[in-house]
Design a protein around this nucleic acid. Structure first.
Lengths: 222, 222
DNA sequence: TTAACGCCGTACCGTACGTTACGGTTCGGC
DNA sequence: GCCGAACCGTAACGTACGGTACGGCGTTAA
């Protein structure tokens, strides 16, 4: 009974106790991987299974609520694209890139994406049933696009960027930032991203993006 | 030369009957998703469960054999980077991009990657135990790198490309080609890639890559 | 002909887990 | 102090599935 499209902010409709339970489920998910059993959650959260079923309906409901709960916690700070010059635009892009790399390389994100991918492989869900993959996509890749596109548009208005389609430009930026990182992590590849490498990758991706979509007007070489 | 462990080429050591069984498992994997039960495989392949266990040891062994069997089938044609001029280089890159997009958007690849991702989430595997994620990575992303890098190096030798690190250049190319496609597909996003869009994406990714890494010598505008 | 062998089909076992049921405890309201 | 609601802990139930055992059948070979 929670959400279909997952619009409602979880932090509103949940009691503190329920949030604590979902936090426990989240921790368990990160630590134990797919071994997320109802008994384990109940034990970890010091609550009864009966309560779990009353609150979340069934295992799928618990999973969905957990994913949405995590999603409601990572609302990233929106970057205002007001004073747009090349330096501030680059800074904004680097910030987005860095934030995104941190997100997709976090244990929580990896665990959640693993669950959602596995969930998408089950065919039982009827049309319109809330599936975890959609929730993760909506709060991950699509949320990023929604926040980044205004910045890109502002850059275009200011004559700093040139592109026909913001969606296409965003996807290129996405590719330049993420490259093979997410898939490798999901497949279990060790690949520790330190603060330094993330920062370097963010700068590199931003430079490449600007090289591809930066306006050719003005005296910028490269 | 393909895998780290499990070097044996599947097509060599398997009998025809065994290949047929693995094909049945593969089909079942694509159709039913994670509902790959031993009983279902036995029924689909018209063999007994006892035979499955004798041949593949346990469920994990069957899964691994299935993944490796599929991997042994998709040996992509190696592109020879001999006569290197800009046009042939671009054609090679477009070919790689197109092939890769076709692979990652195929039902088989999606199903296999889903299984491998789920597998990577289970923590029970002792160090060195063959895990599906490594096999998929080795035959996917890393195999692509092994085949593409010689082409990149040849382009560099011919003065057509400029880069310091082939690995880094490859990863950028990878990002420009795949962008968000694989993650979205794994998460269940509908996203049909037609022959036309794949071709267009391959051309775009190649142009962008050449814009970033193409040598600045000579009269090439963009 | 018959003995050995490989494999199919199926029944069977043990276990893990989702789900339900129930007794006991805490707590707010009257 | 009493009642009811909410909740905890745990036992119990049903099922699905990995894994094993066994009888039967076709094929090969002595």
């Amino acid at each position: 009974m929670l959400q279909t499209r997952a619009e409602i902010d979880s932090s509103e409709t949940l009691t503190e106790r329920q949030k604590a339970v979902l936090d426990a489920a989240l921790r368990l998910l990160v630590e134990e991987g797919d071994q997320l059993t109802m008994t384990a959650v109940a034990r970890r959260a010091s609550c009864s299974k009966e309560t779990l079923y009353k609150w979340f309906g069934d295992r799928d409901g618990l999973l969905t609520a957990t994913v949405q709960w995590q999603a409601s916690k990572v609302r990233v700070a929106p970057v205002d694209g007001k004073g747009v010059d090349l330096a501030s635009l680059a800074t904004s892009l680097e910030r987005f890139a860095s934030d995104w790399l941190k997100v997709i390389s976090s244990d929580t994100s990896i665990a959640l994406n693993r669950v959602a991918v596995g969930h998408a492989g089950s065919i039982k869900r009827k049309e319109g049933k809330d599936d975890l993959g959609a929730v993760v996509l909506e709060n991950g890749r699509f949320a990023l696009a929604r926040r980044l596109k205004p910045v890109l548009e502002a850059g275009k208005q200011a004559g700093l960027l040139e592109f026909a389609d913001a969606e296409s430009a965003f996807r290129t930026f996405f590719g330049l930032v993420a490259r093979d990182v997410q898939v490798r992590l999901l497949l279990g590849d060790r690949l520790e991203l330190t603060e330094a490498t993330i920062g370097g990758d963010a700068v590199r991706a931003t430079q490449q993006f600007l090289a591809l979509f930066g306006a050719k007007t003005g005296p910028q070489g490269l």
